[in-house]
Design a binder for these strands. Structure first.
Length: 592
DNA sequence: GCCGTTTTCGGCCCGACTGTTTTCAGTCG
């Protein structure tokens, strides 16, 4: 059983335990272990064999035994037993907003309800309102929640969420009563998908109510699910939930840190404040541990902090950029001055892997190049599909040569501006790991992006061997969308990314961050490891239109989440440097 | 279930909002 499967078992264990009313800290132990295992650097089988599991933070004697059992037998007795006691319908029911394990268990035990459909029927019949602790309003909310769940998956692509959030932030910023405001939550951390939007505003207490009222009446607000003094929640058209918190300006930095999360980062930060400084930390500030009568909300923070930087400093930590706040080692690094200086959007000078009308793009090469130049880039790589991609109008050997001549011609024109088009191909990796062009044709390109576009169903070993074989081919420059996933739509194919990263490192090959908002692939969780193995990254929008070039910004966000610095990303090189690098990777002497 | 120069037992981050209560449980982040 692989790491991902074991993590999934532990995650379900956490949910099952919660449903059975287990100790919440025990639940958390399983949930934390799931996260730890999923992003583990070392090979699980090795750790099991050498009995070093308990050396991992959060893995004790019991969990180590369970991991060992899963690795060795592919099963977990405790998991099977627990699962047998939990009706399967409860699992789907707790996906309803504001309907958690306790309520699911109650309706199951008292009404025999074991599915969302049954719950809906019971609500309509008024049977749920009659239960203790429930009422007419709860019943209506459950029905509304079921409808919301059915209409929307509950999560949204980053760019969708951003497009909805930006005008709301602007509307808040324009209010004269608002002192500071920001987006917080997973959008600020640049997660690949977003559950809901979090807005934070600082203002005088006397103005808070009016700001709340304006917020819940903004255009696009479909319904109001909560409306309090400091917090309101609304559902926007399109089904995205948005929360607004209003605090005083003294509290703003603390609230921003708090609502940016992640929850796991916050827990680690608070535990640290308690342990090292005997300070309790919440969204209002620091207060002396255990002294409830000196709570920060009423008495101000024991340590005043105007910015998040000052909060980290108060805990003897370097500032942790939002993208890194995932409790994946950032606090240790912040303590030791070992945080990376992250890449920024302005560091980008060009990009690879873009399409044109030669295959399935919407724009000519010239229009794409002009758009890239207008964005301030110095070069653009065009990598249209290879011949096997018939539905995408993939190019055969004859057409790529024609395309090469057009690019040569365009480059003479663009040379005046110091701009350059690189001639590439997005070459299919065929089922056996061979490439869609012969070696002679592959020689005409400046670079080759090798991608899997079909045969997703193969087993892990075969797929891994297929991709690694392609990466080892001397003509290949970089790997396109490493796992083939489509966020919220299609799971990735089975592949051993650790082996892929190792192969890329061995052959000096690049792996892309495909910045298309549906892909964001290779996943950010793998990049620190790839970076440390010496693998360089290329941030590519996979643009099929001029607008798609904007995705570069999301790609940079994902690179930042992956701890990448300017020097780890080839798009930060100058035209000259990158031309030399591409030539070097192909084992040819540089002409420049 | 994990963890430990205050503890091998007794802690484990903390608060807002809602709906149901009449002091709180459940849910969420």
């Amino acid at each position: 059983m692989n790491r991902k499967q074991i993590a999934a078992v532990f995650e379900e264990m956490a949910v099952f335990l919660e449903l059975t009313g287990a100790n919440p800290f025990r639940v958390r132990a399983y949930a934390n272990a799931a996260r730890t295992i999923e992003t583990l650097e070392e090979d699980l089988a090795t750790l099991v064999r050498e009995q070093r599991l308990t050396a991992i933070k959060g893995i004790g004697k019991d969990l180590a035994a369970r991991i060992t059992e899963l690795v060795e037998t592919g099963q977990l007795k405790a998991y099977e037993e627990l699962r047998a006691t939990v009706p399967p319908g409860l699992l789907e029911m707790i996906r309803i907003p504001n309907f958690g394990p306790k309520r699911a268990k109650q309706v199951h035990d008292q009404l025999g309800i074991d599915s969302i459909d049954a719950l809906e029927k019971a609500c309509r019949a008024g049977r749920v309102a009659a239960l203790g602790g429930f009422g007419e309003k709860s019943q209506q909310k459950i029905l509304a929640g079921i409808e919301q769940l059915r209409r929307f998956s509950g999560r949204h692509h980053y760019h969708t969420a951003y497009a909805v959030a930006a005008p709301i932030l602007e509307a808040l910023r324009e209010l004269s009563t608002v002192t500071r405001c920001s987006i917080a939550g997973s959008l600020r951390r640049c997660r690949e998908t977003i559950g809901d939007l979090d807005f934070l505003v600082s203002a005088k207490p006397a103005d808070a109510d009016e700001i709340m009222e304006i917020f819940v009446q903004l255009p696009g607000v479909e319904s109001v699910s909560a409306r309090g003094e400091t917090k309101s929640s609304v559902i926007l058209a399109g089904g995205i939930q948005a929360d607004l918190r209003v605090v005083t300006d003294d509290q703003y930095a603390f609230a921003l840190s708090y609502f940016t999360g992640s929850k796991e980062h916050n827990i680690a930060l608070r535990a640290r404040a308690l342990k090292q400084k005997q300070l309790s930390l919440n969204e209002y500030g620091f207060s002396p541990a255990g002294e409830k009568d000196r709570a920060a909300r009423d008495h101000g923070s024991a340590v005043r902090c105007r910015t998040e930087e000052e909060i980290y400093r108060a805990l003897d930590l370097d500032y942790v950029p939002p993208e890194l706040r995932e409790d994946m080692g950032e606090l240790d690094a912040a303590e030791n001055g070992a945080l990376p200086r992250l890449i920024e959007l302005t560091n980008l000078r060009g990009t690879f892997h873009n399409h044109s009308t030669w295959s399935d793009g919407a724009e000519t090469i010239e229009a794409m190049a002009e758009a890239a130049r207008d964005l301030g880039l110095d070069y653009l790589g065009i990598a249209d599909h290879s011949k096997s991609e018939r539905q995408a109008n993939g190019l055969d050997e004859k057409r790529v040569r024609q395309q090469g001549r057009e690019i040569e011609k365009l480059n003479r024109k663009f040379a005046r501006d110091g701009f350059r088009i690189f001639f590439g191909t997005e070459c299919d990796i065929l089922s056996d790991g061979s490439l869609d062009f012969d070696d002679e044709t592959l020689q005409i390109f400046d670079y080759v992006v090798a991608s899997v576009h079909g045969g997703f169903g193969m087993d892990r070993e075969t797929m891994t061997a297929r991709i690694c074989r392609a990466l080892a081919h001397p003509a290949v420059t970089m790997l396109g969308h490493a796992t083939g996933r489509l966020l919220l739509r299609r799971e990735s194919y089975e592949v051993d990314l650790a082996a892929v990263i190792e192969t890329a490192a061995t052959h000096g090959k690049i792996i892309e961050i495909n910045a298309h908002p549906y892909r964001l692939d290779m996943d950010w969780r793998w990049w620190k490891r790839a970076r440390d193995a010496g693998v360089k990254c290329s941030i590519n929008p996979d643009a099929h239109s001029i607008d798609d070039l904007q995705s570069l910004a999301i790609g940079v966000g994902i690179a930042r989440k992956g701890w990448l610095r300017k020097q780890d990303v080839i798009n930060c090189l100058t035209v000259k440097q990158v031309a030399k690098l591409l030539a070097t990777i192909r084992g040819r002497a540089s002409s420049s």
